[in-house]
Design a protein around this nucleic acid. Structure first.
Lengths: 145, 145
DNA sequence: GTGATTGCAAATCTTTTGCACTAAA
DNA sequence: TTTAGTGCAAAAGATTTGCAATCAC
């Protein structure tokens, strides 16, 4: 059972290597927090706080560097839904997002549950790097329930 | 011919009124810049610069306030595609966006050209406020052409 | 008049940067 | 060693806020 997370984490190590990133204490610790707990959406501030809670000494600057390096290495995906704040998503599968504007909560939608039936012609000389679908939600007005 | 833009602008005035916003010199001038030139995507900084170029004296703080008030009144739509910068879109029709990650250019896609064939179930107690589709582009690697 | 609106400067918040120090290879 | 990585504090942006002066009604 403890093996459950061994494989995916090993692959993270491999990917750090192939991205030319040294497996430092900080990067390993952050990778564990990020990838050993299922799919997550974190901000730099949040991950930094979480590291502190786990007695991992990392500076906020390093958290930012690491998040961007992991993103460049394809281990994370940056999601922009709010002005002035970036979320980093550990879910690397094809998927989209619900964004609750009331609470700021970001939730995955499996790629299979959203289908784009019709897409526009891509401008000349450009290629599509990604298609992001964000379904914005608000709490139902009818209070209670 | 000069009439061409008279109507839509009048409706803007009405909407300011019904939103309880006094038609001040600043708000009127910014509204003209925003709504008399077809569909546009502006940042606060850009609109402020444009106002200055037109000899309209407005502070940047007022530009921010105005953009948010217009957005709340339904005259503008805020589009978030880049961390740390908000675009405001004057196109109020149903539509989506191309975002060129290389140049930062934001382009409209008419709602008719994108069709979502399948949408996920909306979580209990929430309602959908908007569905945003952003097609991210990069310049084709094959240089020239 | 009276309350809404504005301008300005200071404050805030997130993210980036410069650089001396530390650690991996 | 040699070079990449880290921490810290300062800097940089974008956006917001507090408050006195100004404007619309």
């Amino acid at each position: 059972m403890a093996m459950l997370h061994t494989r995916p984490f090993a692959s993270v190590l491999d990917q750090l290597k192939s991205a030319g990133l040294r497996p430092t204490r900080q990067r390993l610790a952050l990778a564990k927090l990020l990838f050993e707990g299922g799919d997550r959406h974190v901000t730099a501030e949040l991950l930094h706080a979480e590291a502190e809670a786990h007695r991992i000494r990392v500076s906020l600057a390093t958290v930012y560097n690491t998040l961007h390096q992991f993103t460049a290495a394809g281990l994370l995906r940056e999601v922009v839904v709010e002005p002035g704040r970036s979320y980093f998503d550990t879910n690397r599968h094809d998927h989209h997002h619900f964004f609750n504007e009331t609470s700021g909560e970001l939730t995955d939608i499996p790629g299979t549950e959203v289908t784009l039936a019709r897409l526009p012609a891509v401008p000349e000389g450009r290629r599509v790097t990604r298609v992001d679908v964000v379904i914005r939600l608000a709490d139902e007005p009818g209070a209670g329930r």
